[in-house]
Design a binder for these strands. Structure first.
Lengths: 164, 164
DNA sequence: GAGCTGACTATGGTTTGCGCAAGCTAGCTG
DNA sequence: CAGCTAGCTTGCGCAAACCATAGTCAGCTC
């Protein structure tokens, strides 16, 4: 099984041994959401959970970890901690996803899709994500703005042109 | 900024407090690639790196970590370790992505895209990924098989129907 | 057969992630 | 005003992730 499908590198990047990926977004992203607990808290938030105890209980982590992680994620801007009050109840707090948090959905679904395919021991996905309008399963795809799905060997990386 | 965009849950899933996500693919995926070093090794592999020393050097991790991680990822099936020989050289080994490893590209690019948007302090993406054919930037998107991009609030999760 | 090189392994130490168990506090209910 | 409950915090201990430095080993070149 031979795969010569490395992404092509352009310009100054062409000689991989001549540059270092110092400001790599992947690395930075992993420092924010690179733990199991963080990803699972995000999953829970996508499923609609907003309260502290529910997060800890449903993710299956201790409250100590939940507190630490939620604090970090809130500080990073993925969650917003908001006070709210139900009728006749005292004021409480809920953790709500911000736009920044919501924007991680493709990454989370991509991981889920991959896990469904390779880590479920042939049983396939336990859960199916569908589009309500069409009732068809959704997929996470790499696409060019033009339209169709882009294969890995059709990709090219270049330094982002800097204005001014 | 109010976001009521939790994914909808169907059938037995509707009452979130009544079920546990026990075989969650996201959790399983994070146990395989949930470290910074693993993700960065994958990045390097996508950039075309195949040799041990290059991996360690270019990712910026120690050889000890590189060895451990590459061993794990190979055991998990994301890399294949292959002997090869260049003319007049002795036999060496290279680490090549398998299909399983390649299939993580959408997840890695999704993380990169998110990091580009939120973690580069307004500077934007250091690198741009384009489609060769059209020379247009690519995006990772959640799509229904029908065609267009699916918004988070248009998603619905149900238990996968089991055959037999 | 001395030296080089690629691919590791070994040792020792710090930091982070996580679990278990317990305690604490503000504000509502009885 | 005692008790309950949501939302935490604290203390302890283990294991995993990571770093730095140094050493090993096999097979080629000279």
């Amino acid at each position: 099984m031979i795969h010569m499908s490395a992404i092509k590198l352009e310009g100054v990047l062409a000689d991989r041994s001549a540059w270092k990926a110092r400001h790599c977004s992947i690395g930075k992203a992993m420092e924010v959401v690179g733990t199991r607990s963080a990803m699972l808290l995000l999953r829970e938030a996508f499923y609609g959970t907003t309260r502290f105890d529910d997060f800890a209980e449903r993710v299956g982590i201790t409250q100590a970890v939940a507190a630490t992680r939620l604090k970090e994620l809130t500080a990073a801007g993925l969650f917003e901690k908001r006070p709210y009050r139900e009728a006749g109840q005292r004021t409480r707090h809920e953790y709500v996803l911000t736009e920044m948090g919501l924007d991680l959905l493709p990454a989370v679904l991509a991981l889920m899709q991959w896990g469904d395919k390779y880590l479920q021991g042939g049983r396939g996905a336990p859960l199916t994500v569908v589009e309500q309008r069409t009732d068809q399963p959704v997929h996470v795809q790499v696409r060019g703005s033009a339209g169709s799905v882009t294969e890995p060997d059709q990709l090219l990386i270049r330094p982002t042109p800097r204005k001014r």
